[in-house]
């Protein structure tokens, strides 16, 4: 069976075939959920945000301009929905999101996580949760959602250069942790 493109599905939904929207949901729910879970820190809030995001996208489907991919447009809605929920729960988000130039120190969590993990993979995946939100999200968008830096810059509303800086800085900070524990010698 031919796999319908996002645009073909959108056209069908706009013609009145509401049921076809489920194809888009199945296509993006897991990756969007991953992003929201990382952003909000728990499954309940992530599910609520996921519903909000799909509902907003559904209601605005008619105004979706086809100059960008549906996935980019949808992840932007998801990202903003997540931020809105987060900002209503935590005031500190304003501080965390303010600048990409902020330096962060993972040293406080390092010892605890290093002592409770036995291999570089578990160690690194747990350390991702300790990164500042934007640094963790850029890794999710790049590695899980397979987005280009250009798409990431649109989703996160930052310049292309800043998206690249965020990605490199996040990856380098994880790399430095591996170096610190000599994990690079494993390979």
């Amino acid at each position: 069976m031919k796999k319908l493109s996002d645009i073909e599905i959108i056209d069908s939904v706009l013609k009145g075939n509401q049921g076809d929207y489920s194809l888009l949901i199945d296509r993006y729910k897991d990756k969007a959920f991953s992003l929201l879970k990382r952003l909000l820190g728990n499954e309940m809030d992530a599910e609520e945000a996921l519903q909000d995001s799909f509902l907003k996208a559904y209601n605005s489907l008619g105004s979706f301009r086809r100059d960008s991919k549906f996935s980019t447009w949808f992840y932007r809605i998801t990202y903003n929905t997540g931020l809105t929920i987060l900002s209503s729960k935590k005031r500190k988000i304003e501080h965390e999101m303010s600048s990409i130039d902020e330096h962060f120190d993972l040293g406080d969590f390092d010892n605890e996580i290093y002592s409770t993990t036995s291999n570089p993979k578990d160690y690194l995946l747990k350390m991702i949760d300790k990164l500042p939100i934007r640094n963790a999200l850029v890794l999710i968008l790049f590695y899980i959602d397979d987005m280009s830096l250009n798409e990431i810059s649109q989703v996160m509303d930052v310049s292309l250069v800043n998206a690249k800086v965020l990605l490199h800085r996040s990856r380098n900070s994880l790399r430095d942790l591996l170096l610190k524990h000599n994990y690079q010698e494993v390979i």
Partner: peptide, 25 residues
């Protein structure tokens, strides 16, 4: 170390959305 980081990040698992999410929605 950077290659190892990249390799691990590429193996990051997707968190599955709740079962029946699509039907409920």
């Amino acid at each position: 170390a950077l290659k190892l980081t990249d390799e691990i990040l590429n193996k990051m698992e997707v968190n599955r959305a709740p079962v029946n999410f699509t039907e409920m929605f």
